[in-house]
Amino acid sequence: VSSEIYQWVRDELKRAGISQAVFARVAFNRTQGLLSEILRKEEDPKTASQSLLVNLRAMQNFLQLPEAERDRIYQ
């Protein structure tokens, strides 16, 4: 997982004009609270716990989908 993931998520929230709650639900089936905590802490993926890595990997995989497909999912 790239250490850029945190910025990618922030950029996607702005680009798509969606809330953290929507992104958390569709990208990795978690709550806004968890996403907020992940973004606030910005732990280095190289030293992250296994559970954090699973979530970061799910977010990264979601962000690799084509933009149009992500936008459809947000609706």
Results as ranks from 00 to 15, higher is better:
Val1Asn: 02
Val1Ser: 05
Ser2Ile: 07
Ser2Val: 06
Ser2His: 09
Ser2Cys: 11
Ser2Asp: 08
Ser3Phe: 09
Ser3Ile: 11
Glu4Pro: 03
Glu4Leu: 11
Ile5Arg: 00
Ile5Thr: 02
Ile5Gly: 00
Tyr6His: 02
Tyr6Asp: 03
Gln7Asp: 15
Gln7Leu: 15
Trp8Asn: 15
Trp8Ala: 15
Trp8Met: 15
Trp8Val: 15
Trp8Ser: 15
Val9Gly: 01
Val9Pro: 00
Val9Arg: 00
Val9Met: 08
Arg10Phe: 12
Arg10His: 14
Arg10Leu: 07
Arg10Lys: 12
Asp11Pro: 03
Asp11Glu: 08
Asp11Ser: 13
Glu12Ser: 02
Leu13Arg: 02
Leu13Ile: 15
Leu13His: 00
Lys14Val: 14
Lys14Asp: 12
Lys14Arg: 08
Lys14Glu: 11
Arg15Val: 00
Arg15Asn: 05
Arg15Tyr: 05
Arg15Ile: 00
Arg15Lys: 01
Ala16His: 06
Ala16Ser: 14
Ala16Asp: 03
Gly17Ile: 03
Gly17Trp: 04
Gly17Ser: 15
Gly17Pro: 06
Gly17Tyr: 07
Gly17Glu: 15
Ile18Pro: 02
Ile18Ala: 06
Ile18Asn: 00
Ser19Met: 03
Ser19Pro: 14
Ser19Val: 02
Gln20Asp: 07
Gln20Tyr: 08
Gln20Leu: 07
Ala21Gly: 12
Ala21Glu: 14
Ala21Phe: 12
Val22Leu: 10
Val22Tyr: 08
Phe23Cys: 04
Phe23Ala: 00
Phe23Asp: 02
Phe23Ser: 01
Phe23Glu: 00
Ala24Cys: 07
Ala24Thr: 06
Ala24Leu: 06
Arg25Met: 09
Arg25Val: 05
Arg25Ala: 10
Arg25Ser: 13
Arg25Asn: 14
Arg25Thr: 10
Val26Leu: 09
Val26Tyr: 06
Val26Cys: 07
Ala27Gly: 05
Ala27Val: 07
Ala27Tyr: 04
Ala27Arg: 00
Phe28His: 04
Phe28Ser: 05
Phe28Thr: 06
Phe28Val: 04
Asn29Thr: 08
Asn29Phe: 06
Asn29Arg: 10
Arg30Ser: 14
Arg30Trp: 05
Arg30Met: 09
Thr31Leu: 03
Thr31Gly: 10
Thr31Cys: 07
Thr31Asp: 12
Gln32Asp: 11
Gln32Ser: 11
Gln32Asn: 13
Gln32Ile: 03
Gly33Lys: 12
Gly33His: 13
Gly33Val: 08
Gly33Gln: 14
Leu34Met: 12
Leu34His: 15
Leu34Tyr: 15
Leu34Pro: 11
Leu34Trp: 11
Leu35Ser: 03
Leu35Pro: 01
Leu35Ala: 09
Leu35Lys: 02
Leu35Gln: 05
Leu35Val: 03
Leu35Cys: 04
Ser36Met: 12
Ser36Trp: 06
Ser36Arg: 11
Glu37Gly: 08
Glu37Gln: 10
Glu37Met: 06
Ile38Thr: 04
Ile38Leu: 08
Ile38Val: 06
Ile38Cys: 04
Ile38Trp: 02
Leu39Ala: 02
Leu39Asn: 00
Leu39Trp: 02
Arg40Asn: 07
Arg40His: 09
Arg40Trp: 09
Arg40Asp: 15
Lys41Arg: 11
Lys41Gln: 09
Lys41Tyr: 04
Glu42Lys: 09
Glu42Tyr: 00
Glu42Phe: 03
Glu43Gly: 04
Glu43Phe: 04
Glu43Cys: 10
Asp44Ala: 07
Asp44Ser: 11
Pro45Thr: 06
Pro45Lys: 00
Pro45Tyr: 00
Lys46Arg: 13
Lys46Tyr: 07
Lys46Ser: 11
Thr47Gln: 14
Thr47Arg: 12
Thr47Trp: 08
Thr47Val: 12
Ala48Val: 07
Ala48Ile: 05
Ala48Phe: 03
Ala48Gln: 01
Ser49Met: 02
Ser49Lys: 10
Ser49Phe: 03
Ser49Val: 05
Gln50Val: 10
Gln50Cys: 14
Gln50Arg: 13
Gln50Ala: 13
Gln50Asp: 14
Gln50Leu: 09
Ser51Val: 08
Ser51Ala: 14
Ser51Thr: 14
Ser51Gln: 11
Ser51Met: 07
Leu52Asn: 08
Leu52Gly: 05
Leu52Gln: 08
Leu53Trp: 05
Leu53Ile: 10
Leu53Thr: 10
Val54Arg: 13
Val54Trp: 08
Val54Thr: 11
Val54Gln: 13
Val54Glu: 15
Val54Asp: 11
Val54Leu: 11
Asn55Pro: 06
Asn55Gly: 09
Asn55Ser: 13
Asn55Leu: 09
Leu56Trp: 00
Leu56Ser: 03
Arg57Cys: 09
Arg57His: 10
Arg57Pro: 02
Ala58Glu: 10
Met59Asn: 01
Met59Pro: 00
Met59His: 02
Met59Glu: 00
Met59Cys: 10
Gln60Thr: 08
Gln60Phe: 08
Gln60His: 09
Asn61Arg: 11
Asn61Lys: 11
Asn61Cys: 11
Asn61Phe: 05
Phe62Ile: 05
Phe62Tyr: 05
Phe62Lys: 00
Phe62Asp: 03
Phe62Val: 04
Phe62Cys: 01
Leu63Asn: 00
Leu63Glu: 03
Leu63Trp: 02
Gln64Pro: 01
Gln64Thr: 10
Gln64Leu: 13
Gln64Tyr: 12
Gln64Lys: 14
Gln64Ser: 12
Gln64Gly: 10
Leu65Asp: 01
Leu65Cys: 06
Leu65Lys: 15
Leu65Met: 12
Pro66Trp: 00
Pro66Glu: 08
Pro66Thr: 07
Pro66Gln: 06
Pro66Gly: 07
Pro66Arg: 07
Glu67Phe: 05
Glu67His: 08
Glu67Lys: 08
Glu67Gly: 05
Glu67Tyr: 09
Ala68Tyr: 12
Ala68Glu: 13
Ala68Asn: 10
Ala68Ser: 13
Ala68Met: 12
Glu69Ala: 09
Glu69Asp: 13
Glu69Tyr: 10
Glu69Val: 08
Arg70Gln: 01
Arg70Phe: 00
Arg70Asp: 01
Arg70Ser: 01
Asp71Gln: 07
Asp71Lys: 05
Asp71Trp: 01
Asp71Gly: 04
Asp71Glu: 06
Asp71Asn: 08
Asp71Leu: 03
Arg72Glu: 15
Arg72Gln: 13
Arg72Trp: 09
Arg72His: 14
Ile73Gln: 15
Ile73Thr: 09
Ile73Glu: 15
Tyr74Cys: 02
Tyr74Trp: 01
Gln75Cys: 15
Gln75Asp: 08
Gln75Pro: 05
Gln75Lys: 14
Gln75Ala: 14
Gln75Phe: 11
